[in-house]
Simulated assay, not measured.
Amino acid sequence: MIGKFKSGALLLLVMVFVTTAQAGTGPNLASVNAAVARVGDDNLVFGKNADRQVPIASVTKLMTALVVLESGQPLDEALTFHERHTPAANNAYTRIRVDSTLPRSEVIRIALMSSENFAAYTLASNHPGGYDVFVQAMNEKARALGMSGTRFVDPTGLSVLNVSTASDLVRLVNATLKHPEIREYSTTGYYRAHFRNPRYSLSFGNTNPLVHRDSWGVELSKTGYLSEAGRCLVMVSDMNGEKVVTVLLDSLGTRSPLGDSGRIKRWLASGETGTVAKAARRYEQEKNASYAVADNGPATVN
């Protein structure tokens, strides 16, 4: 149901792009899989392969943060960065020193805004019951949210076996928005963390350039990248006076999700579909072909 808006003009605009979406048209996007929805509504305004199950890379960390916050563990508790008990599935370079400590709140912050993998691992390792119980809790939360196409095997997203769908991630975003800490931490532009044992400091930057642009009004953000997952961006931003959830999965280059965000914003405002580069279109064709060969359609999670 369309909510009540302050102006008749905005209501007319909403009706225009809802009609456009229902007609099966939408913006031309470089991302192979995508979903667009209004904040608080799991129904899509626009979807592109929105139910296809694909690797989501570090977008995983949104669920990691959600499980940590809902566990009720104190945010001011100092966590120790112990060596991993198992090797990371992919390159997990970090500047954080083993055995140093940082408050849980700051560990969540750098995991979200800078996609720090050692931070996400440490959050899971300090969960009541340990790492494996934490991953189990991630999957239980996914089921509770109705994310039927989602499966997690680690808290970082380094594993290609962490999979979801664009439509499922809309549900996750709407759930995480209930936590002001996730909104704040994920949109922090720059942060300097002060570690102990030993004492040292590290600076971290947000992996989404749009958080620095006031015109976008970004309220939640998470990027992700693996070669198998492509470039990913999940975001809540201001689009033409309305808060919109954007999920973009599997883009060719670092700027493709940013370009897609702009194309979605213009489409919502005017119906303009936009164009994408030939290289991105070829990439999309190749990935669609590989998905078809791999499973002939979305996989099923048992």
Rank of each mutant, 00 (worst) to 15 (best):
S215G: 13
R109C: 05
H127Q: 10
L112E: 09
N197R: 04
G262R: 10
V98C: 12
V133G: 04
H194N: 08
Y283P: 02
Q22N: 14
Y93K: 14
T176I: 11
R38M: 13
A89M: 14
A124E: 09
H179T: 11
R109P: 08
M15H: 10
V153Q: 12
N197S: 12
N117Q: 05
S115W: 02
F17K: 00
T207G: 01
M235Y: 06
L29G: 02
G149F: 07
F134Y: 07
E70V: 03
A111K: 06
D295Y: 12
Y291Q: 04
V36A: 00
A111C: 04
A294H: 14
S227H: 08
A23Q: 03
D168A: 03
R231L: 01
W267A: 01
L112W: 04
A23K: 09
N28T: 13
A89N: 13
K48P: 05
T300I: 05
L248W: 01
R266H: 15
V59M: 00
P198R: 09
T19G: 15
V32D: 05
R38C: 03
K4G: 08
G217M: 05
T188R: 05
T275R: 15
A277D: 10
A88G: 13
D168F: 10
H194L: 07
V16Q: 15
R213F: 11
V68G: 00
Q285M: 11
L158W: 01
L123R: 06
H194Y: 03
S115Y: 03
N90V: 14
A57K: 02
K278D: 15
V244K: 01
R171M: 02
K61E: 09
L268K: 15
G253D: 11
T25N: 05
V160D: 07
N288K: 13
W267M: 04
L62H: 01
N91H: 15
L75N: 06
L62A: 01
E83K: 11
M239R: 03
L112Y: 03
S164L: 08
S58H: 00
L202F: 11
N296W: 15
T86V: 14
A144K: 12
K141T: 13
A142F: 14
E116G: 06
L233C: 00
P87N: 10
V16Y: 13
L79V: 15
Y185N: 00
R104F: 03
N240H: 05
V211S: 05
S31P: 02
M1N: 08
R213P: 09
V170Y: 00
